[in-house]
Structure formats: C-alpha cells, structure tokens
Design a binder for these strands. Structure first.
Lengths: 369, 369
DNA sequence: TTGTATGCGTTATCAC
DNA sequence: GTGATAACGCATACAA
C-alpha cells in the first residue's frame, strides 16, 4: 500500500509462497493478495485501464507481483467473461491437396498469433456440405470469426451464414457483401508483360488455359500491357483441361514449329505460361528443339510452384501468387471487424500483387532476327 | 433471469418463446426450467450419467426440452469447469512448404472433429526457436495436448516439454519417450519390390538418394525383398542433394546407356525411384531414348506427389506416404492419453503402411531378353 | 482510488 | 431421484 509497507516478505518466516508449486498457475486473486490490493486493481492494471484509477506505485507493485508469480490470465475464464475466444475458424476447400493453401494458412496463423489469436482449421475436402457443418461447429465453439479460403481463385455462390464475422480469402462472393482478399490478377498479367517487355522482347507467345476466374483477368492484363507498347502476342495457345507438363510440351512445340517439324521463322523469343507445370513442359520442348533457355528463348511461368520451379534446369522465373499475404490480410480484415463490432461492415475487396520471382529462364532476346 | 418464469414471452403476442431469439442461446438452466427439473438432472442426462439416477420419463422430458430449445452446452463454460478445452495444438516445421503436410493436417482435423476436438495450428517455418514459443503459447491457451508434425521423416532431438500430453507425427524422438506415428519405411520398400517382382521384373534398377532417415530403411526393405526372390538390383544410382526432375533424367540416362550413348545390353526393365520428381525425370529420359513406358520400361515412383504423378504421361505408379493416416492416428494417440490421464504413458510407435497407387507407368516387362 | 458483489454457464458435491 | 449450492477465474458496475 505505502512504501513503508512490506514490499516483499510479510511475515518473519519466509513462507516461500511466491514459488508456486508447478501445476497450480497463479490466479489474479493470488496476485492481488501478494501485492496487497484487490482483484479489481489487478484487473485494471493488467488490462491497461489503470490510467486515472490506480496510483503508479500501486501499479508497479501489482506488475511486480504478477511477474514474480508468473501470472497469466486464464484464457478460458476470460473468454467466458468477455465472450471472445481469441479463436479464428478457418475453413478451406482443400488444404490437403494444394501446395499453396499451406502458405495461406501459414500467413494466417502467423498474423493471428501476432494479434493474440489462434487459428483452428477445418478442411472440407471440396465437399460443400461439410463447409456448412464446419461453420456451424465453429460457431458452436464460439470462435470470434470465420475465414473462408479456397485453393483456386473463384467466386463463391453462398457462404453459410452463422452470424459470425466472415472474410473470404482467395475467393469472393457474388454479391460483394463480404470483405475479401484476392490476387490482383490483371496486375499480375501486366507484371508478366512488363517483365518480358523490359527485357527487350517483342515477339511474345502465351500459353493460356481455361482457368475460370483468374485466367481471363490475367490474360487481359497481359495483352493490354503489351498493347500499350504496341505489341501483339505473336502466338497464343489455349490449353483445355489438363495444364500438365505434357500439355505445355506439346503446346510449345506447336508454337515453335511448323507442321513439318521445322522451327518457324517467325516465332516468339519469349513465352508466358499459364502455370509452372506448363512452363516445365515448355522448357523440355525447347531443349528438344535445340533451343537454349534463356539464350534463345525466354520462358516465364506462373505460380512459383516451389517444388518445381526452383528445381528445373534452368530454374524457372515465375510469378508468385500472394498466398501468404492473403492469409495475413484476411486475418487483419477479420480481426478489424471483430474488434470493432459497431463499425459498419465495409465490403472491402483487397487485391494483392503477385511478385515476380527472378530465376534463370528469362533473359534478353537473342540479338539477331 | 427469466422474467416471471414464463416459458413464453410475457405479452400475449407472439408467444413462440421456444424459438430462442437468435443471439441468445439457451442455457442448461433454461432447459431445466422448461422441463420442470433441476440443472443437475439436465447435466446428468446430457452427460450420460443418468443411468441409475434419473427416471426414464424425466430423462425423455429433459431431452425433449433440450431439443426444443436447441440447447448446446456452452463450450467455454464447460472448459472452465472441466479444465479441458477440447483443443489440440499442432506444431509443424512447415505446413507451408510441403504439399504433404496438408494431408497430415487434414487427417488430424478430420479425426479431431470426430472426437469432438478442434485443431489449432502453428507453423514454425523451420525456425526451432518458434517451436518452443508455440508450445508455450499453446500451453498458456490450455490446449489439451500437442502434436508435433514434421514434413520429412526425422528424429527430433528435443521436444519442448510444457507439461502437456504430446505425440509426434512423421518424426520420433531419440529417447523413444513420446508416442509417435511414422511411415513403415522398410515395409514400403518391400511393397515396391513386390510390386515389381509380381509383374515379372527381374532386371531391376533403383535410383535412391541420401535421404537421412527414410532412405536407408526404404532401400533396405526393397533390396531385402528382392533378395528373398533371388534378385539383385541390376543397377543402383545414388543421388546426392537435389532430387530433381533433372537429376532423375541424368541418373536414368546413365543407368540405361553406355558411355557412347547407346542403350546398354543389360539394363533394367523396371526402375524404382526415390521420389516422383526423379521418376518424372526418368520418364523423360526414357522418352528421349525411344523407350516406351511401360511397354519397354516400367517406372515406379514414391510419394504420390499428386500435382505431378497423376499428370504425367504416362501417369505415374507410385507409393503414397500415409500422411493423412498419420494425422488421424496422431490425434487418436493423443486423445487416448488425454482421456486417460492416469494410465501409464506407453511410448507407442506406430508404423503405417504406404499404399501402392496404381497408375500407368508400371506393367510387365517386355517378353524378350 | 480501492474494495465488494455479481454474473458468465457448466459440472460436481451433497444433503434431502 | 432430486434440488440447492459451491466452485472454475475473470471482468466490471457500483458502492465506499
């Protein structure tokens, strides 16, 4: 209470109460007891509400007592009282099958931790029925909010509404009512184009695919940027269905050779591929045709599928979808609304850039021709 | 709390009190009230302890009341009381970077859900310091137990001990004190061998790698099973470091051709590859050498790296590491000890089989030779 | 400025 | 069989 009091041992006989027997964490009452104050004071100090309420000396005493006792508020008791669990539910259509979803998840858990939250995850495995169920289970568990993450960018028809703050990651809802964070696909296409343009390429080919949402946007940004420099793709191949290494291989051959198997006269000096697998096929096709990459032909991939892109020879320059960052920002978006329950729900749509990952497969075009 | 104890709203209009206004979930007291019994009775019935205590009629009445009110026990309140959060903490060295970790996670969340638990995850991103921190944070959050999962099979030196039940997935501790679940690597090697043997192959090559733990075991099982049939690998290549498509390509060429580039006389009719990337390289090498797969040469991969194996031409037969099952069983192991706190901790080591995934790249050897 | 009393919703211990 | 009553640990309106 006052400096003349007994800051440390109250009685003469060292009862050693400060060393709590392990397994019995200190409670707020213990702290109050030890600091010679009430639980209220403890609560105020530890929640930063001590400003005009608690004397500085008292505050210090409480802080010290808490430290000595290694006090941590019991999260469950706190939750019961505040009706906030500091838990986020993340529902995804497939963590399991995508190498990217993990990045998103990693970003989300990281950021959540920074903001004092845990992320509980549930994988619907592409079974929409389970998503609804998962949402309800999370709601029943009183999570503070929900994140829906999809593996591929897509528009989701309906998100189960269980009365919880919800944000979308790598997807968006038709009615644009929910905050969501997605890749800026058009910009990514533009980045790819600029990369090739800046290296001096003018004869540019593109192998695209029937990607539902992302594809057209990406291609639009690509061709538009090209057009702004007065360049038109010299060749375009559209892959349907399987964007495999094999498909990339054949598409590239078709793009580079004539029917008789000879190299075309007028052929691209650079090819932009819809994804890294296709780019891998392109690499192989080039090798088969005696074209050196990147000396004779530059190849730019998409996705930064690490297991693949970094291990090819030559290693693949590509664009990395911002999965990790989507995870982080989805959490931010969500916690912002969780922590401001009264604020109006702004249907934010954040579009994140896909950074270029420079490796070996892109260089300036060959001087001649 | 309930004003006047009227089951319906006080006013004459819109009685419908049983349809709780959303946002105000029914409590156990509400149920007791509505069924005209005490909370004790409700608790007994809902926790299955009604056997000799509650009259069947009463039991039914309570059940009905609960159903009508759509009562669900408040998990936070329950946790506070039982000091069990029904939460599992999963720490992994890299969800993010591995396509497999997702499977493990999926299996874990699935099984946890079946047993009434949620899985909160944290990705240390290969930073061991963070693992300790994560463990402490989970402990502070009062999770019921911890799972450590690693991306590649390995022995872990020390697992942070935060006084929580812990099990290991896809790794094991040096002292064998912790329950853990890992792939049966030797058996997997045997399975691969038997697969090739059963198809009639006797000239068998293997491209292995310097995989720390799994490699030797797997190879041991493979060669042992071969030996039991009196077969010795006709060629063995060991890859160091990068197990890339490219490495597989060159290793396969080396295995199939002589120094002058001609096909060897005595060459394998089947090759077992350390992983699917290497197998992809083998596929390409075979194609380059004019060998048809699987007609002239069978290729068996390992890992079932889906993005790759299923999309190659021909698609790759391979062995799938039991990641999903490891996740499931890790949860089972963990919850078994969580639910039997008094039982002695048996340092179980479960070894799970890697199923063969039949696709196109393996067939009988060519008749001649 | 500090202390007191109460509620969050459950489970568990007893007397009745 | 049943029904009060006490924790669990924290936060806070309100009284001192």
């Amino acid at each position: 209470m006052n400096p003349g009091g007994h800051p440390t041992s109250g009685g003469g006989r060292t009862p050693r109460r400060d060393e709590r027997s392990p397994g019995k964490p200190a409670t707020a009452l213990d702290v109050a007891h030890r600091a010679g104050v009430s639980r209220t004071a403890v609560s105020f100090v530890l929640n930063g509400k001590s400003d005009g309420n608690i004397a500085e000396a008292t505050r210090q005493r409480i802080l010290e007592a808490a430290r000595e006792l290694d006090y941590r508020p019991h999260p469950v008791a706190r939750s019961l009282r505040t009706s906030r669990t500091q838990l986020i539910g993340l529902i995804t259509d497939s963590i399991a099958s995508s190498p990217f979803a993990g990045q998103l998840l990693g970003g989300a858990t990281d950021r959540a931790r920074e903001r004092g939250h845990l992320v509980a995850v549930f994988d619907s495995g592409e079974r929409p029925a389970l998503e609804e169920q998962a949402a309800e289970e999370f709601a029943g568990r009183r999570v503070d909010g929900l994140i829906y993450a999809s593996m591929g960018l897509r528009e989701v028809a309906s998100v189960p509404d269980v009365g919880l703050p919800t944000v979308l990651a790598n997807c968006f809802d038709a009615r644009g009512e929910l905050p969501s964070v997605i890749p800026a696909e058009e910009e990514a296409g533009a980045t790819a184009a600029r990369c090739l343009l800046d290296m001096g390429h003018r004869q540019i080919g593109v192998i695209t695919g029937d990607l539902v949402v992302a594809g057209p946007r990406r291609l639009a940004g690509f061709t538009k940027t090209l057009a702004e420099s007065g360049v038109k793709p010299v060749a375009v191949q559209e892959l349907r269905g399987g964007w495999t290494i094999d498909a990339g291989f054949h598409a590239t051959r078709a793009m580079l050779t004539r029917a008789d198997g000879q190299l075309r006269q007028r052929r691209p000096t650079a090819i932009f591929c819809v994804n890294d697998r296709v780019a891998a096929g392109a690499l192989l096709a080039a090798a088969g045709l005696g074209l050196a990459v990147p000396a004779d032909l530059s190849i730019l991939g998409f996705d930064d599928q690490e297991e693949l892109a970094a291990n090819l020879v030559p290693s693949l320059s590509t664009l990395a979808l911002p999965h990790r960052e989507m995870g982080r920002q989805a959490v931010d978006l969500l916690l912002d609304v969780v922590e401001q329950p009264d604020a109006p729900v702004t249907p934010t749509l954040r579009e994140l850039p896909s950074p270029l990952v420079w490796r070996e497969s892109v260089a300036a075009p060959p001087p001649t021709r």
